[in-house]
Design a protein around this nucleic acid. Sequence first.
DNA 1: CGCGGCATTGAACACCTTCAACAGCGGTGG
DNA 2: CCACCGCTGTTGAAGGTGTTCAATGCCGCG
Lengths: 223, 223
Amino acid sequence: MRTEQDAQRICQFRRHEHLAHKGEVQDKVYKLQEGWASRYCVLPDGRRQITALFLPGDYCEPQWLLSGKSDLPIVALTPVKAQTVPLAGIHAKPGDGVMKLLRGVLEAHDRQTSWIVSLGRKSAIERVTDLLAELFQRMRSHKQIVENCCTMPLTQQDIADVVGLTPVHVNRVLGDLRSRGLVRFSGKTLHLPKPEALGIPSLSQAEAAPGRDPAADRRILAA
Amino acid sequence: MRTEQDAQRICQFRRHEHLAHKGEVQDKVYKLQEGWASRYCVLPDGRRQITALFLPGDYCEPQWLLSGKSDLPIVALTPVKAQTVPLAGIHAKPGDGVMKLLRGVLEAHDRQTSWIVSLGRKSAIERVTDLLAELFQRMRSHKQIVENCCTMPLTQQDIADVVGLTPVHVNRVLGDLRSRGLVRFSGKTLHLPKPEALGIPSLSQAEAAPGRDPAADRRILAA
DNA sequence: CGCGGCATTGAACACCTTCAACAGCGGTGG
DNA sequence: CCACCGCTGTTGAAGGTGTTCAATGCCGCG
């Protein structure tokens, strides 16, 4: 019965179909295998903001383990194939599974912190390059980069809803980056000729401890 | 020896003094008793963004339980008195302590999500009122509201660094809110004559208990 | 008293939005 | 097969929101 069990644990979603609704009780999490999804929020007057992106390999949403519900909707940005991971199973046999999810929560928390900095203090160009850089690195950590290319299924409207801009301005910013030779699009695949120019560390030096900025601290301490 | 033990677990910080530095290893968390603190990020060119606020009663930072380090600095915005909670003790005797911290992580995560929406899609006036409303409600949940008044130790520069605006524009926005009778400042205390006008629910309907499964919590701890 | 941090106000400017129009493209139905 | 439609991307022009620069007043504190 293994094949049948596996089949039960895989589910598919069409583009714009919801993986979760607002306030819905969740007794499972998804592990994305193909396609992208997003958590979003719509204000009463229609303004929309994407607050999280889920890529293949990501858990969606790890904090459901603790909260038991999704307080914002999750929607597929592309056709999605996902594995369902029942929380009951994780609770029954705690251990590795719990830690994986908690690590997922921490990663999401760190990404959100970075986005707050981007949205609060960075220009349109910086926000877009930050997003492309983050996605490029997440794709790379899931081994989905080939020759500085990766799939980029987001529409300009999607990007706008992530970076807090209008679609037309995202278009202009992308055009600017293109004219400067920093990005190239061919259909739904993104090519970054010089990843370092976007602040993306080369693959070898994975992560090196950044070390604090003394001038920055001095500004705070100048009391 | 009780008094001596207690004394060891209380520490004080002056305004602008750091509770944690960037990348520092943490073997404890703080529980704030008096005063406010903030996590912040400074860009190379000096732009500053506050990514979290810590009020009396809050844990700072609950996720250190899982990450073991602070990747952004924490600084006191006022004189701070805090209780240190060693993580070794929590790990040694898991139970209630772990869940309190994990709940703190989830609350921080939800607040960050709301701030992404604010920073991405809301106007200056909305961002400032959102902040005042959030702080008012957090103060109220810690029983620190008297007659629609609470202490508001943030300077306009601090507020600007939270809501992603310049201090002068924050000043104009506050002046606008004041002229509309929505807020009043007397020194460092904030008075909200009509909390409902800022979207703050009245005290009675405080919170409809989110309803969590204590048994589930206990299972997680076994990990 | 004098100094430094904080609040306040004005004027000019920049960045991003808004509105509008159009092109390309895939899908659907006549 | 082609016409039509909707979605996505692209570009221009005008306008608004928030920034920048600068000056002034206030207040607590050494």
